[in-house]
Design a protein around this nucleic acid. Sequence first.
DNA 1: CTGAAAGCGCTTACAG
DNA 2: CTGAAAGCGCTTACAG
Lengths: 336, 336
Amino acid sequence: MATHDAPRRRPTAQDVARAAGVSRATVGFVLNDTPSQTISEPTRRAVLAAAERLGYVPSAAARTLRSGRSRLVLCVVPPWATTEALSAFVQRTAAELHALGYVTVTHVTTTSSLRDLLAAASPAAVISLAPVDPADETRLRTLRIPCVHGYLLDYPGHPHTLPLTQQTMGALQAGHLRERGFERLVYVQPADVGHPGRADGRYTGALTGAGGPPVERSVYAGTEALAALVRGWADDPRRTGLCAFDDLTALELLAALDRAGVDVPGHVGVVGVDDSSAAPFAHPPLTSVRFNLTTQARDLAAWVHAAVRHGPAIPADTPPPATDEPPAQLVVRAST
Amino acid sequence: MATHDAPRRRPTAQDVARAAGVSRATVGFVLNDTPSQTISEPTRRAVLAAAERLGYVPSAAARTLRSGRSRLVLCVVPPWATTEALSAFVQRTAAELHALGYVTVTHVTTTSSLRDLLAAASPAAVISLAPVDPADETRLRTLRIPCVHGYLLDYPGHPHTLPLTQQTMGALQAGHLRERGFERLVYVQPADVGHPGRADGRYTGALTGAGGPPVERSVYAGTEALAALVRGWADDPRRTGLCAFDDLTALELLAALDRAGVDVPGHVGVVGVDDSSAAPFAHPPLTSVRFNLTTQARDLAAWVHAAVRHGPAIPADTPPPATDEPPAQLVVRAST
DNA sequence: CTGAAAGCGCTTACAG
DNA sequence: CTGAAAGCGCTTACAG
């Protein structure tokens, strides 16, 4: 026995029209809330009920093709930006964009080019958490898809720079260590930090936050190299404050310091970046820089919305709304 | 002065045809590698060169609408599945799917329904890392979009179950603790673990892995509650082995045990799940369960590909390829 | 290879 | 509200 109402194809607006006993145009007006049309409440309800009953979902492909608009926002994330803090940032931004009528999806870049991605999806806009390849930038311009930069690197002359920059993070770290009375300041990072600009920016910020040089910089690769650094700090009579590149680096530092029997924070202090969920459980609990991303996610979403409506070139007319909230703050724990 | 070759609209296949001096059909044949057509090498090159020069990217919307096919795979991730290990799993799966010709994007579910998502994108298939809402399952069936379950819950009767299940994890934890001579075994979890089935499955697995009961189960909420548990373990004359729900839970346990002055692993042992990047730097370094996701990502990608080609109902004919690799393994460190 | 064509499902202006 | 219609850019079968 064949089920009589199982369609062999997905339902279309035409099917909804038939089921609701109205014209196809009416279905479109109801489903799109077309303001220029007045639809009576009973008709409206009948259409919506029929759509629901049939499991109708408008074809994204047809809608995008015909209207030239899309509700999809594509967030492009480099592999090194898949941290807790940045994931939270993307999720908040997605929530803000949802309120503006968009749907956000994320793509972690493995191959470098956006070409394949753009041939498979038709986004209204792209958010990139990393500097975009020039070829891809050209492509996006050609396709008239606005690209908003959601990365936290200073980008001179670029209007869309979030208040939170790499500099902010380093400055908070170094300033805090100075306040706590650490005399010698060292910026410590592993050799591989994804995009080198991140570490450079944070180090530059540390120079500022320390109230001027010197802030040393140590790059290590491997346990041996780190142990050698630890010996240097242990033997130094000065109290040494370490600005760790991120929380993971900080955890590695704390473990190495513990192995060497160094007193933390008595002789050496450590500050991370990210305020990861592991930070409170470190040994000792880790002081870290927490991002305040709520308002910044709203800014980013607003830029995307503006770019979609007015085109990518909206430098002067959309300044980020002034907020009292600092872009980041220290969460002080026992490691300093 | 106006730039003479800046088009006001995005280039189409027609533009490429004009630029290459061929017919529009030829462009389609070249760009799609249509096997039924023989295109001479010079023509082929001319078309590709013109496409490249114009920055042509085929319209995903038009292509999907016309062909009824899409190269987009949508991976739906609940907020609690955004861990390092699962992110890595998704990225590996995306890489495998890329090799099969798909492009994968991820959506973290905030609102529960897939409706908005499916109205904004036309995926060829959906991978869900969480059980799918029945309404959404119906919707996907109606839209003829196959949905493959990428979550690690046992799902009785479901053909697509990866070798790695929640049970596997718990079993490895408990088996290891027994081997290490811990007499009393406790499964410890915070009250909120996202989807409760995860903790239930892991606990069930621990019962098996321990070679039979008893394995106690402790659910805590807050530092106070945890401290009370720690006192209980400290006062017990038996060596107690703790199966922590995940690495974060394990880190919290280690911190609490350290505060209470409990000897780890002398008196209490701790095993996590995830083998997160913080695990090696814990105090003491944390023994944890690492997922072997390489082959499992390949299986998942193969299921997606099969589902796209043969429809969602492919139970019997696509068994997961047998691999020698265990679905997960212990990484033993000092905490046990 | 070319050229003319249909049609995917939708949005949206138009005359009633 | 209805009904007939165009057209977004593409894929793809067809006759040459």
